[in-house]
């Protein structure tokens, strides 16, 4: 038990990842405000990106540009560039998704006048009841 406890603290990056991920997930599940849900979603995305970067971190390593052309390449002295590149793409994807999400939020607010999930659902029912009444009258 104690060993497991210390093993976790040996890797603070994993711990941070788990905390941010669960925090974001908790916000997504519990909040009714749509923008808060989006913030939770963005935290989840960011935590995964953070995890991807943190596994490629290396102590005493430098950027992957050859230090010398005459000596043989020492893989241990360079940081792995691939996860960083993947991260960059993942960030772009995340930004695009958040943009679409915010646009949807704005459209929902214009239509229903609220960002609260429960209020929106209530308005939806009201509008539907109104249109049904009109339909019956016609």
């Amino acid at each position: 038990m104690v060993d497991a406890f210390f093993a976790v603290f040996q890797r603070p990056n994993y711990l941070t990842f788990v905390v941010i991920f669960l925090w974001g997930f908790y916000i997504m599940v519990t909040r009714y405000n749509l923008v808060k849900k989006l913030i939770g979603m963005y935290l989840v995305q960011t935590s995964v990106i953070y995890f991807l970067v943190s596994i490629s971190a290396k102590k005493g390593a430098t950027v992957p540009v050859l230090l010398s052309t005459t000596e043989p390449v020492q893989a241990a002295s360079y940081a792995n560039p691939l996860p960083h590149v993947l991260t960059l793409t993942a960030i772009v994807v995340g930004v695009a998704t958040t943009g679409v999400g915010l646009a949807l939020c704005a459209a929902i607010y214009r239509k229903y006048g609220s960002l609260d999930e429960q209020k929106i659902l209530e308005r939806m029912e009201e509008i539907e009841a109104l249109t049904n009444k009109k339909f019956l009258k016609d």
Binding site: K37, L38, M41, V44, T97, V100, L104, K111
Partner: peptide, 21 residues
Amino acid sequence: AGGRALFAAFRYLILGTLGAS
């Protein structure tokens, strides 16, 4: 489509992004 579809699309976005993450 607007209206109800906006809300459906928002739910789809939240769950779909969680899936992608």
